[in-house]
Design a protein around this nucleic acid. Structure first.
Lengths: 167, 167
DNA sequence: GGAGAAAGTCAACAAAGCTGACGTAGTTCT
DNA sequence: AGAACTACGTCAGCTTTGTTGACTTTCTCC
């Protein structure tokens, strides 16, 4: 046992506090890089990260309801409403009264909304593509596995549902 | 060429827009999980994520100066100062006037500051450890590679310097 | 010794989160 | 038909954390 180190036989060096600390800091710095490009674009247009998230998820699920968006984003309706109102006023998002249930509002992107989404996701995908390319396919698989394991159960359920089914 | 798909020979399926979109969303949901546990602890004590970051990096580099911390965190000194002031008032952080240069303040954690840091990093490491364990060592290597490739150059330089040298 | 740079502090403002209360329209249950 | 519930929107007010601008103290260099 002494020869195998404190872990006692298995190779668990990747679970040391030091390794975990590095993972934590990597997550911090990487997330900042991940949001940096969209942040610059958004700032120039007077929007923030909250607008980006709304636009992204409306784009992914056109016709989604406010309530639906709320549970994906995990914010209060007052907070989302503030963002949504400016997006609708600026003509980037369309809100249509539901047919079956008229209490619901179905959200979708307008032409200019789609244009902004394109611009934002182009920038973010470029960053992601570059990282993927430099790290290689095997690393990408591992990357996704760890991220998925790090999510809370409910977002994970939501994520994996879209992961494979998403076209 | 048609048999190999549009990429033309290489296996670049992991670079499709759809794959990249999944990576982007995974990053979003995972980061939320990543910060969830510390956020709960902090909220109970009346602190926010900014306090966590300050405490973390002071812990990692005791005796660091305000300016140094500033460039790691990438915020304005006024913003950091507000956080630092409450931490000092509450007796979690110690600020010592520099000996060689009296303009500088050297920061370090007090006993109770260390206790909070411990509590926060325990929670965050537990989450990270669990994710690592479930994904396995190979996945962890890939995870770190992609994150590193996603950072902006300057944070990456700073990160890799600490990555291997850190104790 | 004086000019200017550097480190840190104070004040005031903005974005985006939160809670709580309330209104309105539409749906469902009894 | 009436009561209860749901979806959405809004007002008011608070917090955290980012910003810029103005200021003091301290050091460095000419």
């Amino acid at each position: 046992m002494p020869a195998d180190g404190p872990a006692g036989g298995e190779n668990l060096l990747f679970l040391t506090d030091e390794q975990l600390r590095k993972g934590i800091e990597a997550m911090f710095f990487a997330y900042r890089g991940f949001t940096a490009d969209p942040d610059r674009i958004l700032e120039a247009k007077g929007y923030g990260r909250a607008h980006h998230r709304a636009v992204h998820f409306i784009h992914r699920s056109p016709g989604t309801t406010v309530n639906n968006l709320l549970s994906i984003l995990g914010v209060t309706k007052q907070s989302l409403n503030r963002v949504l109102r400016t997006l609708i006023e600026d003509g980037l998002v369309r809100s249509k009264v539901g047919i079956r249930d008229k209490r619901e509002r179905h959200l979708s992107l307008t032409e200019s909304g789609l244009a902004l989404e394109q611009q934002l996701s182009d920038a973010q995908r470029a960053r992601m593509r570059d990282a993927y390319r430099r790290a290689g396919p095997d690393a990408v698989v591992g990357f996704r596995q760890v991220l998925e394991a790090m999510m809370d159960p409910e977002p994970r359920r939501r994520y994996t549902a879209l992961r494979d089914g998403g076209q």
